[in-house]
Write a protein that binds this DNA or RNA. Structure first.
Lengths: 206, 206
DNA sequence: CAAGCGTACTTAACGCTGTTAAATCATTTA
DNA sequence: TAAATGATTTAACAGCGTTAAGTACGCTTG
């Protein structure tokens, strides 16, 4: 009697459908348009049905976050992997971070711009072995490589967070304030990376 | 017959009350808690009354933005004004930008983090002579001063925007993701400014 | 002074959001 | 066949921004 198995498969299938629908809406229409009722309409179920598959909207967002972090990790990991210079390897990673945000603004928003911190706790996202943990590790690793090659004595953690913030600033402003009279995108990105990486390896002069 | 005058004064007074109430809520309870119904309750009027004084919520936000920009301008303008070194003058301005955001997160959010770009148009905010315009000018001016003193040939506009983005990244992440295991705040800020300003004036080496 | 007009304000409602409790319906078990 | 279990829906609550309609008051005019 594989009845329970079949039911479990069906349940798992609908659970996946919900996540698929949520992702579709997020990517096609953006974070602002991602609503429980919208998801329900897309899977052709009543809104309340979703609540027997996910505790609430934040739990759905949590799964989309994990997914997005995996993608972001892959993209950044692949960037400049066979680049011999540690500094250029770091630069490629940072550039990939920015490109990811600009190419998939919906995903970027739920990751770093949406107001989900009170609900989806940072602790669970940064669990050891999680995509976020791996991503953090990757950035720190590349920063470390770059620091070793330079004559600078800086704290890897502080530098990593500062570089992350720098890239986030560029992505979030370009996404959030598209009407601002920006200089040409690639020039802004390159100038920013030039400055920040140049400053990382040049001897201090204050 | 100063009746019309008195009425106009009363109308202007209530208009100010609405803005005052909005500012109070924004500063005391944050951007997320700023609602038309909340404002109405505080001024002890029905929510709809507000609509005969302001077109909609965005118009209220617009005025709070102008106000916040004036404050931000003052703070940044005052920072390091009697600092002889152009580079340290720029540094003081950037540090003041970050401090402003961290000290008044509500104001910072409506300025740079909230989803108001489609409604409150950038064009009106950046009008010549407006607080935003003056602020932009101030940053560009200090960047220019710093660039002249260095041997770097960089585009002032690109650099200004990149530095702005850098500071915004730090502020917005610290505000938006307070649970992240950040390094000590001041250390993060100093490291970021070190890197970015060091990179600005050091000769390029790519 | 009374009638009417215009303005200030409120009530009620629409459509949207996330979420919960209760009711229904289908399926499996006894 | 009857009971129980599980899945799903309907109805509702509380909140949001916003609009249309209605009330009530003060001022102007006949």
């Amino acid at each position: 009697m594989g009845i329970v198995e079949r039911k479990e498969r069906q349940k798992e299938s609908l659970r996946q459908d919900i996540l698929d629908a949520s992702r579709d809406i997020l990517l096609a229409e953006g974070y602002a348009k991602l609503s429980m009722r919208g998801i329900a309409e897309r899977i052709e179920y009543s809104p309340t049905t979703i609540y027997s598959y996910f505790k609430n909207k934040d739990e759905i967002l949590y799964h989309l976050c994990e997914e997005a972090l995996e993608r972001q990790f892959e993209v950044i990991h692949a960037a400049g992997r066979d680049e011999p210079s540690p500094l250029l390897r770091l630069r490629a990673a940072l550039h990939a971070y920015i490109d990811f945000g600009l190419c998939e603004p919906g995903r970027y928003q739920i990751l770093y711009m949406a107001d989900i911190s009170p609900y989806v706790s940072m602790a669970s996202i940064l669990e050891k072995g999680s995509p976020a943990f791996k991503l953090r590790e990757l950035i720190c690793h590349r920063v470390n490589e770059a620091l070793i090659g330079s004559e600078c004595a800086r704290d890897m953690e502080s530098v990593s967070q500062a570089l992350w913030a720098h890239c986030h600033g560029i992505v979030s402003l370009l996404i959030g304030r598209p009407d601002f009279p920006w200089v040409e995108r690639e020039r802004l990105i390159e100038t920013g990376l030039d400055i920040v990486l140049n400053g990382l390896v040049s001897p201090k002069n204050r």
